[in-house]
Amino acid sequence: MPVSNMIESIRDALGIALAADDDLLILGEDVGRYGGVFRATEGLQERYGPDRVIDMPLAESSIIGAAIGLALEGYKPVCEIQFLGFLYPGFEQLISHVSRIRYRTQGDYGMSMVIRAPMGSGVKSHELHSDSFESFYVHIPGIKVVVPSNPYDAKGLLLAAIDDPDPVIFLEPTALYRAEREEVPAEIYQIPLGAAKLVREGQDLTMIAWGGMVPVVKEAAVQLVEDQIQCEIIDIRSLYPFDQDLIVQSVKKTGRVIVVHEAPRTLGVGAEVAAMIQEQAFLFLEAPIMRVTGYDVPTPLGALEHVNRPDVNRIKKAVQQVLHY
């Protein structure tokens, strides 16, 4: 089986999708000739031409707004936004139109499109290149939000997102693009949206994370074994819709939960996860649900990034607090 990193598996999925559907278009800044700033679309314009892999003017509202018109005419736009922190000029198109057109036209027109964007910290980048505001998008009714944490999931989730009849925001953790290589099947496969993944089994505590936090949580779990603590890890992967069952099932087993995300704490997705758990498994909880998150500060510049980004030590400390509540 071939071995790929995440950027390669994403490129692989995009190539498969372009080959499978003549109406699929890739739109974005520098996605053609240049192959994208992270090379997710490298070689695709050469293979499929400039009318399928389209270099757009530097205008995010144009990318998403024009994609809406193209989708109305039966095209399947897969938009690349260079960084999640650059999506804001296109945010109005997303919240006022993309998410509502199926509803507003009462099903006459769906908005089957994917908007891909690198997100999150961990590579010490410059301002607005490390934003992790996934909860904005989760909060918008009418769109789905997916965050893969490994190459295998990235391909399967992206192919499922492309096949989905509704708009999907596909967030790619920048720190994981080239972090690991693993076996990724060459063939077509899909991972259903809305299904979380049990990454590690354990009976003492449940750790819930997604995207760039999954490897950090995994490392913390490995280190905690030395202290005789067995953590269960759930990678939510699909932030909307999200897999309540797998989480509730795990909480009923462990009775203790920490949620880890790099986004600011207030109204982060962790708040929703915690609220859901106390609604559905209150009597199984042995301790309050603890959040280990970025602080409520603007995404810091590279130099102080590590202070803000949850790390193994912060996670281990939270685990001890929850276990000894």
């Binding site: 009318d51 509202s61 144009s62 998403i64 707004g65 024009a66 994609a67 809406i68 018109g69 193209l70 989708a71 109305l72 005419e73 039966g74 095209y75 109005e92 198109q93 006022s96 139109h97 057109i101 507003r104 036209t105 027109y109």
Partner: peptide
Amino acid sequence: LPASVPIATHLLHAVGTAWAATL
């Protein structure tokens, strides 16, 4: 499309359908 309430945002949708016609 139904009436656009946010101002000028629908102009880009017209650009998109016009682009589709060209393609």
